[in-house]
Simulated assay, not measured.
Amino acid sequence: MQNTDKEKKIAAKEAVQLIKDGMIIGIGTGSTVNYFIEELGKKVASGLKVKGVSSSTKSSDLARSYGIEIMDDFEGTMDIDVDGADQVDGNGNLIKGGGGALLREKIVAFNSRRVCIIVDREKMAGDRFGSFPLPVEVTPYFASGTIKHIEKLGSHCKLRQNGNFVTDNGNLIADCEFGKISDPCILEKKIKSIPGVVEVGLFVNMTSEIIVGSENSAKFIKLK
């Protein structure tokens, strides 16, 4: 197992310790979350009673394969949301959407009492925040025009897989290179003001805690 995979698994194992009997769990999307689902499945097999609300078809299918009950029409508040991130800045703000599930991930996070982000050390970007292209979900209708308006904010954008990547919501993903993002709150508002933008992969002031996996242990960063 590569070091990053080992770090992801360690972070995931620590996150599972936060799950208590009877919880409604938000389940994110991505390689680190896959480890969380695997570890949660082991707990469920041992008798833990939980229900999940997933942010993607892939995560739902994986969770169900491990015997985790996934609700498709839950309209309440999740006790905790466990998700990954592509990058984390020094204030706990996130870039997400590398897996293309950013809209549903943000909906799940917004409707959760607690948002726990699990990452390997490389994801802690610090001053590099923004070096990972920012995913923006856009409507297929007039997508090229929408992208031109995003680029006016100082980025270079391209449709993921030349427009052949389609989200679970039937939309497209524009990967936008802004370089260093020093004020994610303002940038998020500017991008979301553009008609045709469905959601932005900036998660600002949403994180409750971050679990950073290292080679042999995990570090907890409490934010709320």
Rank of each mutant, 00 (worst) to 15 (best):
D5H: 10
K13H: 12
N164C: 12
D86R: 04
I211P: 06
V197D: 03
N205Q: 13
L18E: 04
S112W: 03
D183W: 10
F142Q: 09
N91M: 14
S56A: 12
F203W: 08
K123H: 08
R160L: 09
D79H: 03
T207A: 06
D83F: 02
K148M: 12
S155D: 07
K20F: 11
R114D: 11
G90E: 13
L153G: 08
E199M: 07
I68F: 01
D21F: 11
K13E: 13
K123S: 02
I118W: 04
G213A: 07
C157W: 03
G126H: 09
D127C: 08
N216G: 11
L40P: 01
D81F: 01
K49C: 13
G145N: 12
K180C: 08
D79V: 03
I80Y: 03
S144P: 04
T146Y: 00
A174T: 07
I95W: 03
R121N: 12
A125T: 06
E122Q: 13
R121P: 04
I211K: 01
F110D: 05
I27G: 02
V88A: 02
K224D: 09
I27Q: 02
V16A: 01
R128Q: 12
T77K: 13
K20P: 06
L48E: 09
T139W: 08
G84E: 03
T29R: 01
N162V: 11
K148T: 12
V53G: 01
E69D: 12
K42L: 09
M23G: 08
I19P: 04
K190L: 13
N3W: 15
L187A: 00
Q87N: 10
L40I: 09
Y35M: 05
I95F: 02
I10S: 02
C185M: 15
G90W: 08
N34I: 05
E39A: 07
Q87S: 11
F132P: 01
Y141M: 14
L223R: 00
K152I: 10
K189Q: 15
